[in-house]
Design a protein around this nucleic acid. Structure first.
Lengths: 150, 150
DNA sequence: TATTTAGCTTGCAAAATGCAAGTGATTTAC
DNA sequence: GTAAATCACTTGCATTTTGCAAGCTAAATA
């Protein structure tokens, strides 16, 4: 079994996992960045709900804990999917936004939602969004790409 | 913070996480099933490389450990994404295959690969596949849906 | 000036993961 | 027909990651 050694990089005291699995496979590259329970939920909150502040994500519905959220935001920023800026309206707040690279995940997000819509028989949240995406998947992806909520 | 209590279900001594996060969100439903480091890599091996035996996944390139692989295969089977049958050619072997629900992930897989292709500047594995998917994404997804490797 | 708010950090317990070694049922080799 | 090899796991234990609760700092509000 070829076992890739785990290379840890220190990023301000945080251990991140760049290069953790350097097989060169596109799927592995992607999963290195968002292949965990929480990253895509944070991105979902931004893309589908317009969330942009720390507190928005904390109350995003799934119950992420605050230390994990802080860590994920750093990782996503380090991976270039989101940006972090001071809130001009409120000096103690920051505004997180999807970068081009992050918004470019739009088709991935849309396809995941459509897949769940096809296979999850339990009642859905985001039903309005799901219906819109079903009617016009490309339009939904385009909206996310444009920085709007679909 | 509304914290969903973690409900553990025993499945032959295995603890699975159905209903772990029952927010009803389509994204959360999907991530409940494949929102971890390994599940999508197993599915990738099946969809893009035609892997179907335990040993194929073990030597899939990323170095999954055997206990985790066994666990993931059970979870994916429990979630209805893959099936497990005896190998008619070899009595000590089993054959794992994507179900309809699993193959229906094709567009998700394709979009992830395309996204990585756009943003990963390091040299890729699966380059031939990536080129084909770029040239004809829908054809690639259709191939996976039909049970062929694209 | 005192309190509240927003965004974290820290400490510790619990759970998941990784590694190595072992098990049991075939199947091939001698 | 017995011995070795193969395949698909399981088990035990160390390490890592996660979850929970409490605390901390800077800015805004009362």
């Amino acid at each position: 079994m070829t076992c890739k050694k785990q290379v840890k990089m220190s990023l301000k005291g945080m251990t991140t996992n760049s290069d953790k699995y350097n097989s060169g496979c596109p799927m592995a590259y992607a999963l290195d960045i968002f292949g965990d329970r929480w990253s895509l939920l944070v991105i979902r909150d931004m893309a589908f709900k317009g969330a942009c502040r720390y507190g928005d994500f904390l109350s995003g519905g799934e119950g992420i804990s605050t230390n994990i959220l802080a860590q994920r935001l750093k990782q996503l920023e380090a991976a270039g999917l989101i940006s972090k800026d001071r809130d001009p309206e409120n000096g103690r707040s920051f505004v997180y936004r999807l970068t081009d690279k992050g918004r470019d995940l739009a088709p991935v997000l849309v396809e995941i939602v459509l897949w769940s819509g096809r296979h999850n028989m339990a009642p859905h949240a985001l039903t309005g969004t799901l219906d819109k995406l079903r009617a016009d998947p490309d339009g939904g992806a385009a909206a996310i790409r444009a920085g709007r909520v679909p």
